[in-house]
Simulated assay, not measured.
Amino acid sequence: MDYHIWLAYVVTAIVFSLAPGSGTVNSISNGINYGTRKSLMAIAGLQLGLLFHIVLVGAGIGAIVAKSAMAFTVIKWVGAFYLVWLGIQKWRDRSALTTQIEDKPLSAFSMLKTACFINLTNPKSIVFLVALFPQFIDPKGDQANQLLILGATTIIIDGMVMLGYTSLAAQMGRFIRSQKAMTRINKLFGSMFVGCAALLATAKA
């Protein structure tokens, strides 16, 4: 994989991970309730769920590339339009994150299992990865190697971002959860999604 393409993916993956979602809610909730150290297993669980989605998406994209270059191109453009649509939805989203304050502590395994299930049952992750991966894959290159690089990069970045959310929430969770703060965050990432889509579409034109 070309170094510049990988760097572009890193930036896009950071936006993907930073954008508030169910994984963010879980990380903030755990940070508030249990602190950073006790929440590490939950972060690992989120990545296990994400890994499952990456494997599914990677296998599907690989099969499509092998069968039809035209279908792959169509997926690329549909993905770019989806990023624009997602950006608009984020810009309009004025909801605040809602986290639950737990009275009873959970075991490390329970936190891992719960977090893994959260990502496994989040269809938005699969749709986003389907839209994202084709933008950075060269259909003439080694598919397995490219998907391995993209998948590993996604998991590492998302794990670091979730760790950051957890640590931040342990210190100042009440500010993160405010509606005013979340409205600003959603507008920021909505603009970033649209920007990523525009850059990707221009690069592939």
Score class of each variant (00 low, 15 high):
57 V>G: 02
91 W>A: 12
192 M>G: 09
190 G>N: 05
92 R>P: 11
17 S>H: 03
89 Q>I: 01
169 A>D: 06
164 G>E: 07
184 R>W: 12
68 S>C: 13
3 Y>E: 14
200 L>M: 09
71 A>E: 00
136 F>T: 11
118 I>K: 10
123 P>S: 05
72 F>V: 15
158 D>I: 03
99 T>F: 03
9 Y>D: 02
43 I>M: 10
156 I>F: 05
96 A>L: 06
68 S>K: 15
28 I>L: 05
111 M>A: 12
182 M>V: 06
64 I>S: 00
55 V>A: 04
201 A>F: 02
157 I>Y: 09
137 I>W: 04
74 V>G: 00
127 V>H: 03
18 L>P: 06
23 G>R: 02
32 I>R: 02
26 N>F: 13
48 L>Y: 04
75 I>A: 00
56 L>V: 01
143 Q>P: 12
183 T>Q: 13
181 A>Y: 08
75 I>K: 01
135 Q>F: 10
108 A>K: 06
97 L>E: 01
132 L>W: 10
171 Q>H: 12
181 A>C: 15
59 A>E: 03
205 A>P: 04
126 I>L: 03
69 A>V: 10
84 V>H: 11
59 A>D: 01
96 A>H: 09
104 K>C: 07
142 D>V: 00
186 N>A: 06
133 F>A: 07
58 G>C: 12
183 T>I: 05
67 K>E: 02
103 D>I: 06
59 A>I: 04
67 K>T: 11
107 S>Y: 03
131 A>W: 07
5 I>V: 10
162 M>G: 11
67 K>P: 04
162 M>W: 14
7 L>M: 10
22 S>F: 09
179 Q>W: 13
86 L>C: 10
91 W>F: 13
163 L>E: 12
99 T>K: 02
118 I>S: 12
5 I>C: 05
199 L>C: 15
161 V>Y: 06
76 K>D: 03
71 A>D: 01
45 G>D: 11
128 F>H: 01
39 S>T: 13
79 G>A: 10
106 L>W: 04
203 A>C: 05
30 N>A: 08
44 A>I: 14
97 L>R: 01
65 V>C: 01
51 L>H: 13
64 I>G: 01
45 G>C: 08
36 T>E: 07
150 L>V: 14
98 T>R: 15
145 N>T: 13
109 F>S: 08
139 P>V: 08
40 L>N: 08
99 T>A: 11
185 I>D: 02
97 L>T: 14
64 I>N: 02
38 K>N: 09
15 V>G: 08
112 L>E: 09
7 L>W: 09
111 M>G: 12
141 G>D: 14
162 M>Y: 15
131 A>D: 01
165 Y>V: 09
120 L>R: 15
90 K>R: 13
129 L>M: 07
69 A>D: 08
